[in-house]
Design a protein around this nucleic acid. Structure first.
Lengths: 328, 328
DNA sequence: GTGAAAGCGCTAACAC
DNA sequence: GTGTTAGCGCTTTCAC
């Protein structure tokens, strides 16, 4: 910019005015400046501009895995909202590792992102308190913050699981298994709680061997599922805690003879084309992302008040697998 | 930082030394500085730091749609490589709109990202020439650059399509349809070319009504597919140009009586569990992203030489749908 | 209309 | 060991 000013024989501020379309520049000098800009191939450095302005016009998004079919639409929705506010999205995957989540979140804060949407992996977010105090807006999505107060957008995990399990009970199932994500994950616990509540509401006992929480790695899910189906108290129906688990369970069931009912948390592509089509408790990941991003920008625009927590509804989508009757 | 220096009663540079772990600070002053840092809740501003350093330690990624199951793993792979280089990833979806692609790419350049990975929507990238001249490293992924020289990582679209169509021919099919993406998209054209070449190599004529290029919107694909199957010269087999198209075609075929053979370009989750399981020409989107990112960082580390173009192999995965024999 | 000076928050270069 | 100065590329303030 200095170079452009020299080349055009004008002051620095005049170039700045031209570049930013500010008034107060004569037609004549403007032309001269524009010529110099082209001649020198000048392109304004937005990083420097934003340093001076005190914002970065960027927000950060930290989630587990960008490539997970559940999070991809969430991410895309956040991006769309950001775009509407002329804001860029910086993105990081935590790989479900609390340490990595923290590193990423703090790295983004150090870059002075205006705000942060976090799908937390960890359970203790006190490390963010100084950032919040310093004015970074933070909204949690899909899972709530731990040990701090902050805005959050969640899906109705408890209600959804209750609904899904109740559906299986209504089909006549009495022995229902639950295969879910690791218990450190909030949604996994909530869905398990929904499972237990539904069973209890129906006056059904839960055999301890019917619950299998753990990693979503296919081997683990496969082993757990086989155990539930071939154990001493074999289940006739399964409720699965998220789309990764469901997909693997579908694989296991496809290899077996006896029909087993299945309801999965999360919808997924092609669920309706499997045989049987998979009944799910659907949530709307895009809506989750959209809402979180909107809350974030409201805060950035000055919305005050205490931390808000929004819970989005889930929807039972019967397709066939959840309506398989108990095989004695 | 100035405040910390004042609070600790030391010079600015001393604080900088402590913050960056540089040597040459006595144990005593270091402690004093650290105390002040905590007392004032100081956090280094990386944007300012990087402005001074002349890099941003961030790269940009522009692609069509982050939520597309093909691009999500690509994106994730780029992120992993970036992470290994302590670099953040700024991300933008072009929605297959060349104008939006350009806006995004230039916005990222204005932020002075160190480099850019682009899955181009447009066909003219001369707008990037000044950026490249200014030192921004750019690597194209999945599709080549248009009208400029630049590094690119592609999948073997021509070869893959040739292979897939030849497979159908080997099963005895003579009337094979092609349903693909819009012809402005390079990969769509290449795959179509592969289709034509395979037919020609087998001495088979191609009826003009057998080729349907267009948007991947389900309605369009549905209409095109129905036309190929019910037209005057009905096809007995279909080759589809990408995973979005394949998924819709699977839906259409599921609703019909007569068996139609299908080979799709791109693998997709659960393809093996459909009935029949879907035969695909698989490419490796993660490898595409990984390779592109690695090429980018090689350039950033000073690798010179002319633009390189790498083509990754595809693999035919027979699963059943591609082995359906011609119906009469 | 225009421009000089100061400063955003930091680091590099060179003092002392 | 420590501090001072200059400057990354821009905008803001205020004077001309």
């Amino acid at each position: 910019m200095k170079d452009v000013a020299a080349h055009a024989g004008v002051g620095l501020k005049t170039v700045s005015r031209v570049v930013n379309g500010e008034p107060g520049v004569s037609q004549d000098t403007e032309t001269r400046v524009r010529d110099s800009i082209v001649a020198l191939g000048f392109r304004r450095n937005d990083s420097a501009r934003l340093l001076r302005k005190g914002r970065t016009a960027s927000i950060g998004l930290v989630l587990e895995d960008l490539a997970d079919p559940f999070y991809a639409p969430l991410s895309r929705a956040v991006e769309e909202v950001a775009r509407a506010y002329d804001t860029l999205l910086i993105h990081g995957s935590s790989a479900e590792d609390p340490v990595r989540e923290q590193e990423l979140a703090l790295a983004l804060c150090a870059r002075r992102v205006d705000g942060l949407v976090i799908v937390p992996a960890g359970e203790d977010h006190r490390y963010l308190a100084p950032e919040i105090a310093a004015g970074v807006a933070i909204v949690f999505a899909d899972r709530p913050p731990g040990l701090i107060e902050a805005d959050a957008v969640l899906s109705g995990s408890f209600t959804g699981a209750h609904q899904g399990v109740t559906h299986l009970i209504e089909q006549g199932h009495r022995r229902i298994g639950f295969v879910g994500d690791r218990s450190v994950i909030h949604t996994a616990r909530e869905r398990l709680r929904g499972y237990h509540a539904a069973m209890e509401d129906a006056g059904l006992p839960v055999h301890e061997s019917w619950v299998a929480l753990g990693s979503t790695a296919p081997e683990r899910v496969r082993a757990s599922t086989t155990r539930l189906l071939d154990g001493p108290e074999p289940v006739t129906a399964l409720f699965t805690g998220n789309n990764r688990v469901t997909v693997t369970v579908v694989r296991v069931l496809a290899e077996r003879e006896e029909p087993v009912a299945l309801v999965g948390f999360d919808d997924f592509e092609l669920a309706d084309l499997l045989s049987p089509p998979v009944t799910v408790v659907a949530q709307d990941p895009a809506q989750l992302g959209r809402t979180a991003a909107q809350m974030l920008f409201q805060r950035l625009e000055g919305a005050g008040g205490p931390a808000r927590q929004v819970t989005l509804p889930t929807e039972l989508v019967p397709r066939g697998s959840g309506e398989v009757p108990p095989s004695r």
